[in-house]
Simulated scan of single mutants.
Amino acid sequence: MSEQYVEEGDRRREIIEAALRVFSERGFGGATIKEIAREAGIRSPALIYWYFKDKRALFQEVLGAKVPVVRAVADLARVMDLPPEEALTKLGRAYFAFERMDARVLRLVIGEAIRRPEVAEAFVRAGPGRVLEFLKRYLERQIELGRLRPHDVRSGARMFVGMLIPQLAGKLFFPAMVEDGLTDEEHLRNAVETFLRGLAPES
């Protein structure tokens, strides 16, 4: 690995960290590339455009780097051939780790996504959209391998994520939904088992 590559990787990470700080303080609309460059210790704001197409692309990278479930599907090649029980459990655990995400990112996502449609779209593309795209490709691969029966993977991906949302929403926003004491691991185990039972190959 060349020294230049390492330095560029470090610089990219520095820009993402600086962007998170500025976005968190100023919001997506209030943040400027100039402020982000200053926060990152970069003399020329134009240098940021060497790494990111525009502010929206930088925002998406911030989300992608800081949201656990997005990191979990970043390297598709490593998980594409894992058995469904293992891959879906890994994905579910990353999904539930959302609540342990950097509080600045959580505030940014919730506050900005509600106020600004473009931010909501950027978040969907960087987060839930990327997860759904991964799931569709993963389910297609499992059908090819004969581990799952043929089905509409678009619905399959939505159904699996939909099984996780009530547990996550209960912990983040509606505690009354999880007063029965069901743990993440218990819910995830039941969800994966139920989901895969419905898609078991026909004998």
Results as ranks from 00 to 15, higher is better:
M159V: 14
G64F: 05
I143M: 13
D81Y: 02
L63I: 14
L132P: 01
M163E: 08
E25W: 00
M177C: 00
K90G: 02
S2M: 05
V178G: 01
T183S: 15
I16P: 09
V192T: 08
S203A: 11
P175W: 03
K66W: 07
D102F: 04
A97M: 10
R26A: 12
A40S: 09
V62A: 04
R141Y: 04
H187S: 07
T32N: 03
L182D: 02
I165T: 13
V70G: 01
R137Q: 12
I16A: 06
T194A: 11
V119S: 13
G170A: 07
V62E: 03
E185V: 09
F59Y: 13
F134P: 04
G92E: 02
E202I: 04
L196F: 08
H151M: 14
F96Y: 15
A97P: 01
G181Y: 03
I110F: 15
G92K: 00
F52I: 10
V69A: 12
P68Q: 10
G156S: 15
R115H: 13
E17K: 12
E185I: 06
S24G: 11
Q4F: 06
F123K: 09
L145E: 13
M159K: 11
I42K: 02
I165G: 00
Q142P: 05
P84M: 03
R71D: 04
G127Y: 10
A126E: 09
G111A: 12
I42E: 02
E121Y: 10
E86G: 04
P201A: 04
V119L: 07
E7S: 12
R71V: 08
S203G: 11
G92L: 02
R189P: 00
S2A: 08
E144Y: 03
H151K: 05
F96H: 10
A40N: 03
S155R: 15
R141W: 03
Y5I: 14
L82F: 08
N190H: 06
P117V: 13
I36N: 08
A113D: 11
M159R: 13
F134E: 05
T183N: 05
F173W: 09
A157D: 09
G29K: 12
V62S: 05
F123I: 05
R116M: 11
A87M: 15
A157M: 10
G181P: 13
R130I: 00
E140I: 06
A77P: 00
K66Q: 06
E133S: 14
V79P: 00
D81V: 04
I143H: 02
L76E: 15
V109Y: 09
L196G: 10
V22Y: 01
K55N: 09
A157T: 12
R26M: 11
T32F: 02
P150R: 09
G181V: 11
V161Y: 10
A97S: 14
Q4D: 12
V73C: 05
F123E: 14
G41M: 08
F134A: 00
V153F: 06
E86K: 15
G129V: 09
R13K: 13
V178S: 08
P150K: 07
R78Q: 14
V6Q: 12
V79S: 10
